[in-house]
Design a protein around this nucleic acid. Structure first.
Lengths: 140, 140
DNA sequence: CTTGACTCTAGACCTAGATCAAGGGTCTAG
DNA sequence: CTAGACCCTTGATCTAGGTCTAGAGTCAAG
């Protein structure tokens, strides 16, 4: 299996995946995609597996993985020995990072919400709690 | 009031606020800080108000405001007519953006958490739910 | 007066993840 | 055969928010 049945131009791949042509070439340069076959003219010639791999990259990106991390995931997914264990570890790390970020943002949100609530929306700038909080030493 | 009592070098200001010297000059170029007085030698000479303004900028940045937004907040804080109302509006917008970002991240977290949970952490890559989710069409 | 720390300017460089431009070759429908 | 769409490479540019370098001048302690 894995015989190259179809032959797609870079534009066709881009259209299927919903990504720019330049992005595909960029990923190739960055080692996220293997170097494709070439036609006699020099045109890149892709098979369906590239489409799948590009979708993999896009989904991982949606999950917040960086391209560096995705490159690693791709390598791990090909590692039959330690692949799964390491993949799970990376996913757990990503999960922890996301949770930390959520916590930070919630703290920021709570602080800002309190300020917005306590601001009447009119009056002198000196009495605006938002401006005061920004200008003064933090109290809490 | 607002008489220049103290005279601080850029290094002294940087140290007090906990920010790099280059950053202060950068903020000046970007219009977030006014052009300071100069000594005869050309050295910038700052008063305490600059320290306060820098702290304002840092706190606003901690709340997730961009430098563009902070520049606007600084202008608004000097506007005795519409300042407070506009400041509150900007804060509300920032708050809404933060809440949206939190919601997005929670969605991502839930998806990733489910994958991590369902992955045994060993076995063949083809059976790893994380890799499968990345490689296959999204089901849900 | 010297030495070392500090400051000045202009401009280059950095990260991440692309995106665009220039100048040229290729493919395909009519 | 030609027009228009597509593809090639190399290298520049973009955003945001700085950071760093080079080369030169200044300040303060001893």
């Amino acid at each position: 299996m894995n015989i190259q049945i179809s032959s797609l131009t870079i534009g066709a791949v881009a259209k299927r995946v919903g990504v720019a042509i330049d992005t595909i070439r960029y990923y190739e340069r960055e080692g996220l995609l293997p170097e494709p076959l070439r036609r006699a003219s020099g045109y890149r010639s892709y098979g369906e597996s590239t489409v799948a791999q590009l979708r993999f990259i896009r989904r991982a990106k949606d999950l917040g993985f960086t391209l560096d991390e995705i490159r690693e995931l791709l390598a791990l997914s090909a590692d039959r020995q330690r692949g799964v264990k390491a993949v799970k570890q990376r996913a757990q790390q990503r999960l922890a990072a996301i949770e930390q970020r959520i916590t930070e943002l919630q703290r920021v949100r709570d602080g800002l919400a309190q300020l917005v609530e306590s601001c009447p929306g009119h009056g002198k700038p000196e009495q605006c709690p938002i401006l005061r909080a920004l200008a003064d030493e933090a109290k809490s």
